[in-house]
């Protein structure tokens, strides 16, 4: 084929300085540490000093802000969007745009759903049981013979790492230990 082009019509790479990679990498590690700290340790500290609770909403907003910052760093520098053609940047941003439309309009429905139909006298019991399934999550306590982390209390193979002093919670709350077949067999 006549029109192949040799290396003389070459592409010239845009080489970025090493310091940039190091700086961005460091920033990403620091932000990871920060997001862990804000989620796991900061609420306790704030509570200790100010007696204020960090609500889940605030926690998730903080986490998302950090996540978006990290994402911006990765996209901008590692994926070279900061230096790239506007077209590629537009491609990326259009993804964000249409994704946010997806979020926005789906939530516009799910957050304003009118299935909390005004309840009145006379709703039949059967109808009530049919329609209250999804919206009422409730706590299910641990089964007999299991600690609240879900590990069998007499399991020698997989001891529970979280109940540090033995299955402490289990001993406090559960009284049906005799009822389990294993316990009976042991006696």
């Amino acid at each position: 084929m006549s029109d192949h082009h040799g290396p003389e019509s070459d592409h010239h790479p845009h080489v970025l300085p090493m310091t940039m990679y190091i700086a961005v990498g460091t920033a990403l590690f620091v932000l990871t540490a920060l997001t862990v700290w804000t989620a796991k340790f900061m609420p306790e500290m704030i509570f200790h000093f100010t007696k204020m609770q960090v609500t889940p909403t605030i926690a998730i907003i903080i986490a998302l802000i950090i996540a978006f910052t990290k994402a911006a760093l990765v996209c901008g520098f590692f994926m070279h969007l900061h230096y790239d053609k506007p077209l590629n940047r537009a491609t990326f941003l259009s993804g964000i745009f249409f994704l946010s439309l997806f979020f926005l309009f789906t939530l516009a429905d799910t957050l304003t759903r009118d299935d909390k139909v005004y309840l009145r006298e006379g709703m039949p019991e059967s109808f009530k049981t049919l329609t209250e399934i999804p919206h009422k999550p409730h706590m299910v306590k641990a089964m007999a013979g299991y600690c609240h982390h879900g590990v069998k209390t007499d399991d020698k193979v997989h001891p529970c790492h979280y109940c540090t002093t033995g299955h402490e919670d289990f001993k406090e709350s559960d009284t049906t230990v005799e009822a389990t077949p294993e316990a009976k067999a042991a006696e």
Binding site: L101, F105, A108, D109, L111, R113, D114, D115
Partner: peptide, 21 residues
């Protein structure tokens, strides 16, 4: 991309979302 909910006016979607769509 903004109009998909018009397939769902009566499908148990919120009526407010129906208005927007």
């Amino acid at each position: 991309f903004l109009v998909w909910g018009h397939h769902m006016f009566l499908s148990g979607q919120s009526v407010y979302a129906g208005l927007v769509f």
